[in-house]
């Protein structure tokens, strides 16, 4: 009796959970398909090629075809691998990517979880993926996988600091860790314009450090093709490889969404100070368009890096972080604090 009552009480909640899970999975699938296509087209454009143009109009269905091929492929587990960890690793990577998406507001009130420590929560969840990567590297029983995973560990531990410090500069300016409050504080202009040069510097540091954190070129040492075949996912194939691949692109979207929210005002339209008429016109463009537009701009920036710069060596990578980005972001944080205390920002 009581079981059926509790079932009835929890039924709407369960349905809601199932629907939101389906929604997130669909969003990820579409995001992955779109970003892979976009990356191939951007790469083609920057190398004076055409890119995929055979499957569908302008090759739009190419990534769908690739995904179907990946899904139907056999997921091979090497003989001497640690089978359980090998199976678990891609799930951990993709779950950490999913969790990091939760507190990011996509439009006014459209947010999975309104949490007060969002700015701390996202990097914390994003850096959980290193557990999955280390697990994949260790369980594969392959020297390339292990070296790639260890490099990834060193890289994420170092670059976490710069990411955190550059995020802190916005936290100091707004005085809040909540994403919604940070967006609302940019009602009269985005922080990248309001915060003078120090915020610009912290934006640049954030972009560089987060490119390193999501293991993309020029910091793709964990999967350096020419040295380590495919790094930590050398032994993965089929749908398990697809999950690593998808998580890479989802992570890229999350990083871009965080950058867009903190520096470019998230879903907030482009407002200039007290120009009421101009701000009203901008308000007619809905929030999701602003949010996704800004995120795609940052994604394009990261893709631009990938198809321009050569890969760093591991010592150069650590040099860059500990000798350049860490001190600069610390000094920069001081300047941001000075600006905030003196009230020099707009």
């Amino acid at each position: 009796m009581s079981l059926s009552i509790s079932l009835i009480t929890y039924f709407p909640i369960i349905i809601r959970l199932i629907l939101s899970v389906i929604g997130v999975i669909c969003f990820f699938a579409i995001l992955g398909l779109f970003l892979v296509y976009a990356e191939r087209k951007v790469a083609a454009g920057m190398q004076l090629r055409l890119g995929p143009n055979r499957v569908g109009v302008f090759g739009i269905a190419q990534t769908v075809a690739d995904t179907i091929k990946l899904i139907t492929k056999e997921s091979f587990t090497p003989g001497m691998a640690d089978k359980f960890l090998f199976f678990l690793a891609p799930f951990i990577v993709i779950i950490s990517a999913t969790l990091a998406l939760a507190p990011i507001p996509m439009a006014k009130g459209y947010q999975f979880w309104n949490i007060d420590v969002g700015v701390i929560y996202v990097p914390a969840m994003a850096s959980l993926s290193i557990i999955g990567i280390l697990m994949a590297g260790w369980a594969s029983n392959n020297k390339y996988s292990l070296i790639g995973a260890m490099r990834s560990g060193a890289q994420i531990v170092s670059y976490e600091l710069s990411v955190g410090l550059s995020l802190l500069s916005i936290v100091i300016l707004t005085g809040s860790l909540n994403f919604n409050e940070i967006v609302m504080s940019q009602d009269n202009g985005w922080w990248i314009f309001k915060g003078h040069i120090p915020v610009l510097i912290s934006f640049i540091i954030f972009i560089i450090a987060s490119t390193a954190e999501i293991n993309r070129t020029p910091f793709d040492l964990p999967e350096a093709e020419s040295e380590l075949t495919a790094g930590f996912h050398t032994e993965y194939s089929g749908i398990q490889f697809a999950m690593f691949f998808l998580s890479e692109y989802v992570n890229m979207f999350i990083v871009s969404a965080v950058a867009a929210t903190l520096f470019f005002g998230g879903w907030m339209p482009f407002h200039i100070g007290h120009w009421a008429a101009f701000n009203d016109i901008m308000n007619y463009i809905p929030g999701p368009i602003w949010f996704f537009g800004k995120s795609l701009f940052v994604i394009f920036l990261i893709m631009w890096f990938r198809w321009t710069f050569p890969r760093l060596r591991i010592d150069q990578l650590l040099n860059l972080e500990w000798k350049y980005m860490m001190p600069i972001s610390l000094v920069n944080l001081l300047f941001v604090t000075l600006i905030t205390i003196m009230g020099w920002h707009f």
């Binding site: 951007v42 454009g45 920057m46 190398q47 004076l48 631009w304 321009t308």
Partner: peptide
Amino acid sequence: GMQLTGHYF
């Protein structure tokens, strides 16, 4: 470098 690739793009 980014200027060159941007120009190509």
